[in-house]
Each structure stands twice: as C-alpha cells, then as structure tokens.
C-alpha cells in the first residue's frame, strides 16, 4: 500500500510546474524515504531530478517500494482540479497497480474530489548522479534574481556564458541582435536581505544554452534561493530546495563546447 497526503496542493503543483516542460513522462519512485524522480529531456542535454521527502507529507506510508509511471501532462491536468489550499492524498496499490488515486479535500472537509490517473509502463535507466562532487565554484542567490538574470539574457540570445572569479559572477550573452553582460558581486554583510554568496576554489568560465537556464525559472516559486554549482567540463548543477528540507528540484545541464 502506498499512501501520501500533502496538507496543501501547492507543494506538488509547484514541483510539477518546475519539471513538466522538460520531461513528458517519468517513473515516480516511492520508497520509505519519500517520492523521487529522475529523467533526461529528449535531446539528452538536461537531467531533472526531484525528491519530496517523507517529512514533506502529513501522512506517508510506503510498505514496499514501487514505481509509478506517470505522464506529466496528465498528472498536471488532474492537479489543476485541486484548489491551492486543498489537501492532496495519493493512494496506490503496491502490487502492480494500473492507476493511482488522487483525493482533494478542502479546508473545511466538506468538498472531496476523487480522480484516478492511469499509470504507464516506462522503461527508464536509473542514472548514478555523483553526490556533492568537488565543484570549482558555487554561487547562491535569491531565486528572484536568478529569474531576472536568465529571463533578461535569454531574450538577447541562446549562448550564455557564466564566468566566476573571486567574489564576482559574470553572466554574458551573445545573440543575433547584439550582446550583453551582467556582473553580480557577493553581498557584503551576512544580514543582507537578499544575499548573494560566491565560493570559488578555482575561477571557472562555461557556456550554456539560455533556453534551458530560462526554463529552470519555472522552479523559482519552490524556493527563495537557488544554488548553481560549476566545474569546468561537467554539467552545471542547479538546485531549488523546498523549505524545511522537505525536498528539492535539481537540474543538471550539459555545457556547450567549442569545436
């Protein structure tokens, strides 16, 4: 038996919004620790991973690990039927269920909606993602700042370079209409309202597709802050963490290389 109840639908709605433009379908792996997912986009340029830990849920029960193959567009359609304050309960049989049940209940518990989502058999390879590898540079900034930088720059062009030196990050773009750049310095005091922190072991300069960096802004409502981790020649890791260590959405984006 798998049963998981979120107090408010907002959490899962936001998480799905952050991933559904990158992934069409994926296996939601349920275990005693929580709900997780990993999938590459079709061109194999971006890997998206998501975890909702068991503590994110008001009720969480997973007797045996199970994998639910879900079409992201279908689950989003069903979750549109939940008001943001409604609770969401997901129930599935752990013995080869062919559908998952979604129950939405309003705050006064006098309106209860039931939906059944058909599950799919999805062949997916599980990838081993290096945990906390030794990054050359890590920058943390308010997620609203992230949105502003990459929505602005991706309008100019798709080739965005991130260069991080001691205490300064430079984001630049080259496009058909011209080019642009933006420098962001580490904020001075720790009690600054919107801190930017930059940790550099070695200066790094890498180029990425702006289209993807802009797509990741869909995760901004999840988290107040975002962390970007860079190592030359490796994928860029971008993490949006849910409050209270309830989980995260992480993207790994392949760099562009000069040939």
């Amino acid at each position: 038996m798998f049963e998981a109840k979120l107090t408010e639908s907002t959490t899962i709605k936001r998480v799905l919004d952050a991933i559904k433009d990158l992934i069409q379908q994926a296996n939601f792996d349920c275990s005693a620790d929580g709900l997780s997912l990993q999938a590459m986009d079709t061109p194999h340029v971006c890997l998206t991973t998501m975890t909702l830990r068991s503590q994110a849920f008001e009720v969480y029960r997973c007797d045996r690990p199970l994998s639910m193959g879900i079409n992201l567009s279908s689950i989003s359609k069903i979750l549109k039927c939940a008001a943001s304050k409604d609770s969401v309960k997901i129930v599935a049989d752990d013995e080869g269920a062919d559908c998952a049940e979604f129950i939405f209940e309003n705050e006064s518990a006098d309106r209860i909606a039931h939906f059944e989502l058909k599950l799919m058999d999805i062949d997916s390879e599980h990838l081993s993602i290096p945990e906390d590898s030794d990054y050359q540079a890590i920058i943390s900034m308010p997620s609203a700042e992230y949105r502003r930088i990459f929505s602005d720059l991706s309008i100019i062009g798709d080739t965005i370079t991130i260069e991080i030196n001691k205490n300064t990050a430079c984001f630049s773009v080259e496009g058909d209409i011209g080019n642009g750049s933006l420098n962001l310095a580490q904020t001075d005091s720790a009690d600054e309202k919107n801190p930017v922190t930059i940790n550099v072991k070695e200066p790094v300069k890498m180029t990425f597709p702006g289209k993807y960096l802009n797509t990741f802004t869909k995760a901004v409502p999840i988290s107040e802050f975002v962390t970007l981790c860079l190592t030359d020649g490796n994928p860029l890791a971008i993490e949006f963490s849910l409050p209270d260590e309830a989980g995260f959405v992480r993207y790994f984006l392949a760099p562009k290389i000069d040939q």
Binding site: L47, S128, T159, N234, P255, K256, I257
Partner: peptide
C-alpha cells in the same frame, strides 16, 4: 559555434 554536449557521458547507468 559552441556545440552542446550530451549528458550521457557524464552519468553512468546504475
């Protein structure tokens, strides 16, 4: 023009 890398080479299949 920079060419996009493929992620397959970065992550091993378990």
């Amino acid at each position: 023009t920079p060419v996009q890398n493929d992620l397959d080479e970065f992550f091993a299949v378990c």
